[in-house]
């Protein structure tokens, strides 16, 4: 069997002495959308940080067969990963357009960068209206769109999204997921999405995992995850 695009095997991660991930296995196939569910504090954010080399990690994280553990973050990002951090993390004192340019940090194709900026302005017209404004002054929804567009400016093979719907109105969340679906379909960008809104995420993802206390307790197709009794009680509330 061919190896998946992203393959985590027996991953352990710790902040200082406190081990947060305890032997986690997970994979994302080429072009696939995978959702990672779990209660607060389960270790979802830490999983994404472990992939990007932002927390002390043991075990194996491979992207297209290449080992990422032990590499500095900037190197991992250069391999084609974009990370949209939890709480958005836009550069508040930079303009909207400068935020997008930072997203293209590893690219050299000036014309292509400009074309992509215009492209995301087309997808998120609110950003176009505010291109010269400081990102810190925008609403939560606008900042989230900027964070996603900024991540995609790097033309990643794999997009990591940490709770993209956090703090967004329902209608904006739906629009955001519609955009993500289109990006996945048209550019075959693979995605690993951490999401509280399990129902919405599972309607879009091909497969899902449930994380509990630092290891995977359930994994399968979106339907399997949705159909699981314990899962329904814990995360879907019916």
């Amino acid at each position: 069997m061919a190896e998946a695009l992203l393959q985590l095997s027996d991953v352990h991660a710790a902040y200082g002495e406190v081990e947060v991930l305890r032997g986690l296995d997970l994979e994302v196939g080429e072009g696939e959308v995978v959702v990672l569910l779990g209660a607060n504090g389960a270790g979802k954010t830490t999983t994404l940080r472990a992939i990007c080399g932002m927390v002390g990690t043991r075990g194996s994280v491979r992207l297209a067969g290449q080992e990422l553990v032990g590499r500095p973050t900037e190197w991992v990002i250069r391999q084609g990963i974009a990370h949209v951090p939890q709480g958005r993390g836009v550069f508040g004192s930079l303009s909207v357009e400068e935020n997008l340019r930072v997203g293209a940090w590893n690219r050299r194709d000036t014309a292509g960068i400009q074309a992509d900026i215009e492209r995301w302005y087309g997808v998120f017209p609110r950003l176009a209206e505010r291109r010269t404004q400081l990102a810190g002054g925008m609403s939560g929804g606008e900042q989230q769109m900027l964070a996603v567009a900024r991540g995609l400016m790097g033309r990643p093979r794999l997009l990591l999204l940490d709770e993209p719907s956090l703090g967004l109105a329902q209608i904006i969340t739906r629009e955001l997921f519609r955009q993500l679906e289109q990006i996945n379909r048209e550019e075959s960008v693979s995605m690993l999405i951490v999401e509280q809104n399990a129902e919405l995420a599972l309607s879009f993802a091909g497969r899902g995992y449930v994380l509990e206390s630092g290891s995977i307790v359930l994994g399968g197709t979106a339907d399997e995850v949705r159909g699981n009794e314990d899962m329904r009680r814990a995360y879907l509330g019916y």
Binding site: C52, M54, T73, E74, I77, R78, A82, H83, P85, G89, V90, F91, G92, S93, L94, E98, V102, G103, W105, N106, R150, G154
Partner: peptide, 14 residues
């Protein structure tokens, strides 16, 4: 300036 604005976000931008 990106690092000055948000160190962690700058790091994940590469």
């Amino acid at each position: 300036r990106a690092v000055a604005a948000n160190r962690e976000a700058a790091q994940v931008m590469g």
